[in-house]
Each structure stands twice: as C-alpha cells, then as structure tokens.
Design a protein around this nucleic acid. Structure first.
Length: 427
RNA sequence: GGCGAGUUACCCAAGCGGCCAAAGGGAUCUGACUGUAAAUCAGACUGCAUUGCAUUCGGGGGUUCGAAUCCCUCACUCGCCA
C-alpha cells in the first residue's frame, strides 16, 4: 500500500517547517503559536470537501496531501465531506451555483468519502475519521440555528468576506442561501471542536473567509483560540488555470480522467512550475527535489523532473500498476521508433489506455476522429485535417484517408495535433 | 412598493432595423520553431454542407419584405429612493 511508503522529510525541524518549505502555507492564524502546536502533542485537525461533483479534483488533492503530511507528523485528521454545505453551495466569486438535488448530493458524498479515505491512513495511533456535517445540521431547526448560531454573526463582518464582497460588486449578486454558507462552515468547526477537540482547520486560501468564520465563532462561544491554515491557490506561471486540460478539470476518478490523461497532464508541466509541483504533490525529500531542480537547470530537454512528477502523482492517485501501464503506453506512442515496429500486444495495450473506438475497416478518418472523441463535430474534424493536424499511424493525412488497421494487431493510431492520441480498433 | 440600468458565443466586451454567424481582447485548438516545455509568429474557433443552408444574441409573443437591434410580456441581476 502506498500510504505505508510515505513519510515526511526528517531533515526538517518539524512539520511546520516542511509545510512552509513546500509552499503550502499562504495564510494562517498566529504562526508562532501554530508552529509550537504542531511540534507538540498530537492535535485534531480537519479539512472539508463539498460534494459539488462526483469526484474530487487536483485542487482537493492539495488539501488531501497537506492533511496526510500532518497525519504523518502524528496529528489526528478529520475528513469532512459536506453533506449539508453541499446542499447550500459555497459562493464562488463569479456566479450563483445551481443547486443539485438531495439525492445527487447524497450520492456524491459517498463517492467523495471513499476518495478521501484513500489518501489518509486508517491504521495506527491517529487514523483518519470521516465525518459528515449533515449529521449535526439535519435535525437543526431554522429557529434554533438563528438563535444559537446566527446571533454570533455580525452582518457587517459577513459582508466583508471576499467571496461575498466580490459577488455584491458583480452583476450576479448573491442569494441569501449562499450568503449563509460561511455560518454553516463556521458551525462545522465549532461542532468538531466540541465533539473531537479539533483545533486546526486547513483549506484553500480562497476559503480563508470560511476558515476564519469558524475560528471567530469558537472564540466567541467557547473563548478558545483555535487555528486555520490556508494553502495557496496553485497557479501556472503563464497565468492559465492550473488543473485543467483541454478545458476539463483533472479529476481523481479514473473514469472521469483516465490514468493516461492524468499522467500526461503532469508530464507536460512547464519547466517554470515543475519544482513547485514536486513540493506540493509528492513526498519526495527536499534533497531529491533539489537534485531535480539542478537537472531542470542543467539538461531541461530530458525533463527528468516532469517524468518523476508524473510517476509520483499518478502512482499516488491510481496505483503502481496503472502507472506502469500508462508509462509503457506513453513510451510506445511517443517513442522515436516506428509505430509499425512495435509488437502487437504492446501496441494494443497502449491503445487501450487512450480514448478509443471500434470502427469498420475502410471508415473515413473524419468519422473515426468523431468516433474516438478526438473532435466533437465533423466541422471541427474537417478543420483539423485542413490545418494539417491529423495523422494516421504517424503519417499526415487529408480527408480522403481511411482507417485500415495497418499496424501490428490490426489497429490504427489516430493523432490530432502533437499529443492528442486515440486508438482505433477494427471491428 | 417606486424609479432607473442591464441580460450578446467558454469568459470579458462591441453592436443598437439590412453590409451581423455577430468587432475586439482573453481562454482554447492547429501549424512553424522545440524538449510531448515556455516564449514568439501564423491560422482556426455555432452546426451541417460543393461560395449554400439551418440554428444563435435571457424566455415567450408581436411589428416589419427584413430584428441582436423596435414594441409587449415574463424571469433574473444591479443601482437609487421608500
């Protein structure tokens, strides 16, 4: 099991130093107090994940790995999946969310709980405990909520939270529902503090307003100072959004984002970003990462850091077996050699890692492009061909080409652009 | 409750009766150059199709030979006043 192989880097004085070095602390409550707290006796901490999709994505992975690092340092994690907050919706800066049905949210809760539990150990002294905020909010009446919790919140403060303020300044406005979200999240922290003695919440820095909602509430109600850490939003150095590939989010679920695509995503990381990614997304030691940093500098064309990053993160999320398969497929398909020189079995399993389709022999390329999902319409396919961006078995083609399964094993490799591939089987 | 402003393609944003499938920017895709990188340059970017057709400019209805552009109505958003 991969969890057993993970460890924090002993060369750091304590876990706080390591988190800082990895660039995982963007904002936090009192730093000196936090450092001391984390270096001392085991504490209980939590991080929440709202079921807004059937799977977690790379942004959530940052949180999961941060939690894991704290667990490795001996602290006790609470993995919260927001069965109730997911029904309300955290205000995004741009627009109001569409509410999902209760059934959908409940199903997603189950899926996310399964994912969360994969990244945190259930063994030993400090196993992860999964909690669901629906457990303490479902039976709460609106009146009790307003009397017992609402009374502690000042609207002036709530309006100043970035998420709320930006929405009030936009054309989208904000519903009362989403406006209330910060109270619910604050209440979660209070509840976990009471039930489990939780004294630290981690989350993305975009959640800072919600994190402090909890620390403030606990201070007011219980008179205790508790903590919060906001991890930075991961951004690409070229200004584009991190964690997207062809406009789609990179999901942790293998059905929603294949291990092949996942691996390729990391392999294509910019030189300028790869070291920062290694720090955040892998358990490699400081010495190992510094060595890779030298290699990026000395021989960037080898992309040693990108390869290592891709292997590490893919193994973490999809396991060693799947990773071996996608590495083999990637080498077969992107290798310098002639595709026709590969043996049938290697080629076939490589194509199975790709988006693929089965078509009749003699099918025009255009239809095959559509069938494999390489393009989303015939017009787009024509355009791609006209731009010279389509190859069949590595040879540039025009619209008259057909699928013939000429490679060993009777298969065909279809490529759009430089690195978007699909497999075609004859059937 | 009253008054005013607004809703355009993935995002921002022009257009204000025909020349608008709709300017511009961003994102994205493709090509060249490369290292399955970045930057740069070039092209593409509603769908189907032989310079043609169909469907788009919040929803619905209307005026007109003709509407994203005018009118009515509904929904939503923002602002000011109560």
């Amino acid at each position: 099991m991969i969890l057993a192989t993970q460890q924090n880097d002993p060369s750091f004085e304590d876990v706080w130093e390591e988190l800082t070095w990895r660039g995982l602390v963007h904002v936090s409550t009192d730093q000196a107090a936090l450092k001391e707290l984390l270096a001392g006796e085991p504490i209980t901490y939590y991080c929440g994940f709202d079921p807004t999709a059937p799977s977690l994505h790379l942004g959530n992975l940052v949180q999961l790995l941060t939690m894991r690092r704290l667990q490795l340092a001996g602290h006790r994690p609470l993995g919260l999946v927001g069965g109730s907050t997911g029904l309300i919706g955290d205000p995004r800066p741009t627009a109001e969310r569409t509410l999902n049905t209760k059934e959908t949210v409940a199903e997603w809760v189950g899926r996310l709980q399964e994912q969360v539990s994969r990244f945190l150990s259930r063994e030993g002294e400090n196993p992860v405990r999964l909690v669901n905020n629906l457990d303490w909010t479902a039976g709460l009446s609106a009146i009790d909520f307003l009397r017992d919790i609402g009374k502690y919140y000042r609207v002036g403060t709530m309006l100043k939270k970035d998420a709320v303020a930006s929405r009030l300044n936009s054309d989208a406005g904000i519903s009362y529902t989403e406006f209330s979200y910060q109270i619910l999240q604050g209440f979660d922290y209070l509840e976990l503090h009471r039930q489990y003695g939780c004294v630290l919440q981690t989350g993305g820095s975009d959640q800072w307003g919600n994190l402090t909602s909890g620390t403030d509430l606990i201070h007011r109600v219980e008179g205790r100072h508790v903590h919060a850490i906001g991890t930075p939003l991961i951004t690409n150095s070229d200004g584009t959004k991190f964690g997207k590939s062809e406009g789609n989010a990179i999901w942790l679920d293998a059905e929603m984002c294949t291990p092949y695509r996942f691996y390729q995503f990391w392999l294509n990381t910019d030189d300028a970003d790869v070291i920062a990614r290694l720090k955040v997304f892998t358990f490699l030691s400081r010495a190992e990462i510094e060595e890779l940093e030298r290699l990026v500098e000395a021989e960037p064309f080898r992309r040693a850091a990108q390869r290592r990053l891709a292997v590490e993160v893919t193994t973490l999320v999809h396991g060693a077996e799947a990773t071996d398969a996608v590495i083999a497929a990637s080498e077969a398909l992107f290798g310098k050699g002639d595709l026709g020189a590969l043996d049938a079995a290697t080629l076939r399993s490589a194509l199975e890692e790709l988006p693929n389709a089965t078509v009749a022999a003699g099918t025009p390329v255009l239809d095959a492009l559509l069938a494999t999902g390489l393009v989303s319409s015939l017009g787009e396919g024509r355009r791609a061909i006209a731009q010279g961006g389509v190859t069949v078995d590595g040879v540039k083609v025009d619209g008259s080409a057909v699928i013939d399964g000429a490679l060993p094993g009777g298969v065909t490799v279809l490529r759009r652009g430089k690195k978007t591939l699909a497999g075609v089987f004859i059937g």
